[in-house]
Design a protein around this nucleic acid. Structure first.
Length: 433
RNA sequence: GGCCCCAUCGUCUAGCCCGGUUUAGGACACCAGAUUCUCAUUCUGGCGGCACGGGUUCGAAUCCCGUUGGGGCUGCCA
């Protein structure tokens, strides 16, 4: 590419379905390429199929791109608004005898010669003469075919680099024939590897290809998904997994993109999301978690921010995705806690629990402050006085207060819960024993 | 079937272009240990791979060919 050439790449989704991981990864690589090269990222909507295109899909696609931070510099252009342009070019080819009619359809004469191009990622690719037949440009219903509209648009929109999935490799020679017939100069092609399902077949709804919105709803952070997706078919080379958007942009080149299809690995995404959550400022994390609690009716819109932040802090290292939180921390938001089946049995099986709870209630009533340190000290005193192991107090008390066998540190939990709720729940638990 | 693409731990990958520095490195997952009131976090260790066969070469994960395997396309869908 010439030094002064301004790089232009595009993402051209079809609004006939939701954007899933594969599609958005293509968008990401195009975006990354233009950011790295200080170029222009164009968004084009391929809605030539009026019957299957729907506004809800379009809106969702735009929302998903924005959520991930893949903002476009130009567009969206709509193919449905460009039909006269396609017709004009088709007529031109007809006039030049490069195409012929068949009914109301217009078909390109494809020359019997080899087509070869130099893929930025894969190197030279050649299709032998006669590999494919004449191509329909305009369908009988007057609408352009995908390949025809695509070529005209990429030319009109001055796209310099076409970065798309490798499933388009075999479309490339067909499009080259159209470029040549129209006398357009060829852009550069880069075919990126596909993202495949766990069984290495094509990603589809059946195979667990979730829409991007699913990840948003589950509480994955856009920056985590961004980072994760960038590492599918590309890497920083260094021994590094977590990288900021800026680092990824700085390092991203098509030459480093792999040729091999990558399987989507949900566990790693979850791990990475947990890493991003841990890095987050707790106040910010609290704001992100709040909607999930509101949805569960655990809190109202005018919730106590300070209090919730204190609770969120306790779970920060335990939350892998935001939607985990309501379940993990439910005992902070309900009056009557639910006991997990095994938790109740555990409580009843333990000896001396009744005695310990009774004494603990008395101790906690007397302390003048209910902060973490005071609570812990008084509990430790009781443990020493009774000559029991710390776990003999801690574990049953946790179950009594939270209904769960596992959770954050007990004393932090007690302090956050507050004296009233702690003693009420201990008293309540006594009835079960 | 035809055409095209691909091939490093279960998965994501580094190394491959410019062959020796590699007992093939890292990450996720898994297993074990340490820390700890549980879980989680964190730390340490472990398990585990160059698909196969031929070349080329003093030497190949790295270059070439073939086989096998996987994938894509083969629509007047995009």
């Amino acid at each position: 590419m010439a030094d002064k050439e301004i790089v232009r790449a595009r993402f051209a989704p079809s609004p006939t379905g939701y954007l899933h991981i594969g599609g958005v990864r293509t968008a990401l690589f195009n975006w990354l390429f233009t950011r790295h090269n200080k170029g222009v990222f164009v968004l084009r909507i391929e809605d030539t199929d009026k019957a299957r295109s729907e506004k809800v899909y379009l809106d969702q696609i735009l929302e998903d791109l924005k959520w991930l931070g893949l903002h476009w510099d130009e567009g969206p252009h709509f193919q449905s608004q460009r039909f006269p342009i396609y017709k004009k070019y088709a007529q031109k080819l007809l006039d030049e005898k490069k195409a012929y009619s068949e009914g109301t359809a217009i078909i390109l004469r494809v020359p019997q010669k080899p087509f070869r191009f130099d893929d930025i990622i894969r190197g030279p690719i050649e299709f032998a003469a006669g590999s494919f037949k004449d191509q329909v440009l305009m369908k009988s219903d007057g609408t352009p075919t995908y390949n025809f509209a695509c070529v005209i648009d990429d030319h009109d929109m001055k796209i310099t680099h076409i970065i798309r999935g490798e499933d388009h490799i075999s479309n490339t020679p067909k499009q080259m024939a159209i470029y040549e017939a129209l006398g357009f100069s060829l852009p550069r092609f880069a075919h990126i590897p596909l993202i495949v399902a766990a069984d290495r077949s094509r990603l589809s709804k059946r195979k667990g290809a979730m829409p991007v919105s699913y990840y948003r709803e589950q509480g994955y952070l856009p920056e985590a998904l961004f980072n994760f997706l960038a590492l599918l078919g590309w890497s920083l080379g260094a021994r590094q997994e977590i990288a900021s958007k800026e680092e990824i942009i700085r390092e991203f080149t098509l030459e480093r993109v792999l040729k091999t299809a990558a399987a989507f690995n949900p566990e790693k995404l979850e791990w990475m999301n947990g890493q991003y959550i841990q890095q987050l400022d707790t106040k910010r994390l609290t704001e992100l978690i709040a909607p999930f609690l509101i949805q569960k009716k655990y809190i109202n819109k005018d919730y106590d921010k300070k209090k919730l932040t204190e609770i969120v802090e306790l779970f920060k290292i335990r939350v892998k995705k935001l939607s985990d939180f309501p379940e993990l921390a439910d005992f902070f938001f309900v009056d009557k806690i639910e006991f997990a089946p095994e938790a109740k049995t555990f409580l009843q099986k333990k000896k001396n629990t009744k005695d310990i709870f009774t004494k603990l209630i008395a101790v906690l009533e007397k302390i003048d402050s209910f902060d973490i340190k005071t609570v812990e000290d008084s509990c430790r005193d009781l443990i020493a006085k009774e000559g029991i192991k710390s776990g003999d107090l801690i574990h049953p008390v946790r179950v009594a207060l939270t209904g769960k066998r596992v959770g954050p540190g007990l004393f932090e939990t007690m302090a956050a819960l507050g004296r009233e709720r702690v003693s009420a729940r201990l008293t309540q638990a006594l009835k079960l024993l």
